Computed example of a mutant assay.
Amino acid sequence: MNCPQPSGAFTQISQSQISQIKESFTMLDNDRDSIVSSGDLEQMLTSLGQYHSSQTISDMMARMPSPLQFPSYLTAMSSILCQFSSKEELFTAFSAFDDDDSGQADIRT
């Protein structure tokens, strides 16, 4: 897929993908204030059982637009998704390893 500038990347993804991105944003926005804050990130990492320090949270926040609201989250996520191959391209590539058309690839070392 040919990705436009990040600000327009969301035009290259489907409505279904936008809905999934919105759902992931909602999961991150623990306090439901429409902004992903350091407290939201801390809660997410805790719920995943991940060790995190205040420095970890600060570093993560420094890499994100501030404030992180859905429009900027959508732009960032869609610019990443836009770089992936389509489902059909991936299926074709992986089917090259499915010698007997069983839906499985035999991997031997």
Rank of each mutant, 00 (worst) to 15 (best):
M1Y: 12
C3Q: 10
C3P: 07
P4M: 02
S7R: 08
G8S: 14
G8M: 08
F10S: 15
Q12H: 01
Q12P: 06
Q12R: 14
S16I: 10
S16G: 12
S19M: 05
Q20A: 14
Q20V: 01
I21S: 02
K22N: 11
E23M: 14
F25G: 03
D31I: 06
R32F: 02
S34K: 01
V36R: 05
S38G: 12
G39L: 02
L41N: 02
Q43H: 12
T46H: 15
S47R: 14
G49N: 06
H52P: 00
S53Y: 02
Q55R: 03
T56P: 01
T56Y: 04
I57N: 04
S58W: 06
S58V: 02
M60H: 09
M61W: 09
M61V: 04
M61C: 13
A62V: 02
A62I: 11
R63V: 07
R63A: 03
M64K: 12
S66H: 03
F70N: 04
P71E: 09
S72V: 09
L74Q: 03
T75H: 11
A76N: 15
S79K: 01
I80A: 13
Q83C: 07
Q83K: 15
S85L: 00
S85A: 12
K87M: 13
A93Q: 10
S95M: 02
F97M: 10
D98F: 07
G103S: 12
A105T: 08
D106Y: 13
D106H: 13
D106L: 15
D106T: 14
I107A: 04
